[in-house]
Design a protein around this nucleic acid. Sequence first.
DNA 1: CGTGTTTGACCCGCGC
DNA 2: GCGCGGGTCAAACACG
Length: 222
Amino acid sequence: MDGLHGDDEAHTFPRFPYFSAPSTPPPLASPLASSSDGQHSPLAAALQQLAPPPWPCTPPDLTLQPAMGDVDWSSLFQTELVAPPEQKEEAVQADQSGENDGEAGGSGSGNKEKAKGSAGRSGKKKASKPRFAFHTRSENDILDDGYRWRKYGQKAVKNSSNPRSYYRCTHPTCNVKKQVQRLAKDTAIVVTTYEGVHNHPCEKLMEALGPILKQLQFLSQF
DNA sequence: CGTGTTTGACCCGCGC
DNA sequence: GCGCGGGTCAAACACG
């Protein structure tokens, strides 16, 4: 794919997606967010930042580096958002309007929705959930985006010597999935496809911002 | 022991 | 109807 050059602005981001949210992020449902008039308070602004984006919520910043092992961050910055191969239009579309979904599919874990495809199994044509894909030039297949993922499958895909890995967000009520696959042409490039929107804040981000939030909360009293 | 990974089997949609 | 390919399940396994 044309991947690594941003001529199509609708499909690509100049830099790490986190820094350029395409649409206004959904407000975080939190008691702290109820600031009477909902004006632009520092607290509200901070909370805005906590709204879980569909893509990696943690930019490769300094605070998380130690946990990242030997990731070449300079390479990671060569990240571009692309539309998933099969659903280019839909993915971008969902990007614009994508609000709900990500919703925990209700059950989330428990019930084996395995019974009956319930379309849950197909995933082929149905594009009800927003999907975001981007290329990352990295030696690591898995980039730490701040969320916790559990691998639930791996498949060899056609026309590619590299297997595709399937991950699911481990948060109990979150149904976001992601696929990770190396490009057949250029194995240095990892294609990560996110499906759905997290309905919970990023753990690591919360951890990092926790003290700041407390301070803001305190200051907002005056 | 809890959590996450591996891996073969299974299911489903689609094209022929 | 059948085969193929992709996505998911779940038991077994590994690891801290």
